[in-house]
């Protein structure tokens, strides 16, 4: 050992990394794929068939009809968005990040990083140059419903779940409380409602139903609020229980639905800032109202 030559910061432990004589640089290449021996049984063979093969029991044909909204995006909206969001000779704008300690003192080891500069605790994302490669697209739509009465009667999640499945034609998942909230009599693990995450055809079908049938029939609806948005390109709107009656699947046998509840609709886009997301969503016949506040970093 040539321990006398090492001039690193003094560690607290005798076995700190700098003082070690040698370390292995050969990465282990065996057992990269983890498996259990019973996975190799012949009876497990059907589960190895990929989902897109008609031999699989999970097979569902994907492309069975035209996707109007996707074609509209590709034919019309994408090229317009490229022109609208273009800024000549722009550069990447770095967000504010947490600040690491320099490491010159041994007391810096394991010390948590400082929060970002300014009056904020959470780091912000970088805004990259807008090119043809990162055009904003609608990634998914989340429809979620919370029911207060589930606290007292847990079985009230059932009509909520059925309603969401009817209007989105996708199987919903339940939402559970993550922590105790004593003022609402809510405890961890209780059912609060249901949600659906839509993508692909189910998403575009839902959006076209929303923009062509449901929203035009709501008398008070002026448009999605321009203040809506979480700052990173996700826009949300809310529907009341009366608004949901305009969905054709609900309206067809409206007398059956004695109790409906409202829902939140969150449109997740890949836009880096909210103004870009609003421009994109307005291309699907979804109007916006109110004054728009442009963030300082766009």
């Amino acid at each position: 050992m040539n321990g006398g030559l090492i001039q690193f910061a003094r560690g607290f432990h005798a076995t700190s990394a700098s003082a070690k004589a040698k370390i292995s640089v050969v990465e282990p290449v065996h057992h990269l794929v983890k498996y259990k021996k019973w996975h190799l049984k012949p009876s497990m063979a059907p589960f190895l068939i990929p989902k897109n093969s008609p031999e699989s029991h999970r097979y569902r044909p994907a492309t069975t009809r035209q996707d109007r909204i996707l074609e509209h995006y590709n034919n019309t909206i994408a090229s317009d968005l490229l022109l609208i969001t273009h800024k000549h000779e722009s550069t990447n704008k770095l967000g504010v990040k947490t600040r690491e300690w320099s490491g010159e003192s041994p007391y810096h080891i394991n010390r948590p990083a400082k929060p970002p500069r300014g009056n904020r605790l959470v780091p912000t994302q970088d805004i990259k140059v807008r090119t043809n490669k990162n055009l904003p697209v609608i990634e998914k739509v989340t429809v979620e419903t919370y029911d207060k009465t589930c606290v007292h009667a847990a079985e009230n999640y059932i009509p909520v779940k059925v309603m969401l499945q009817q209007i989105t034609s996708t199987k919903p998942t339940l939402i559970y409380a993550k922590k105790n909230i004593p003022t609402w009599n809510l405890r961890r693990g209780m059912v609060m409602g249901a949600k659906v995450e839509l993508g692909g055809r189910a998403m575009t079908d839902f959006l076209s139903t929303l923009s062509l049938i449901v929203l035009p029939r709501i008398k008070e609806f002026k448009g999605i609020k321009n203040t809506s948005g979480d700052g990173s390109g996700n826009i949300s709107l809310g529907l009341t229980a009366e608004d949901i009656r305009h969905f054709p699947e609900i309206e067809a046998n409206g007398e059956v639905w004695n109790k409906l509840s409202g829902c939140n609709i969150i449109i997740h886009t890949s836009a880096q800032v909210d103004p870009d997301a609003r421009t994109l969503i307005s291309g699907l016949n979804l109007p916006f109202t109110g004054k728009e506040k442009i963030p300082s970093r766009v």
């Binding site: 969001t85 800024k87 000549h88 421009t279 016949n285 109007p287 766009v298």
Partner: peptide, 19 residues
Amino acid sequence: ATKREFGKRFPMELRVPTD
């Protein structure tokens, strides 16, 4: 010419094409 315009919206008259 190169000024970035904010608050751009597609016109409501632009419909998604149908068959």
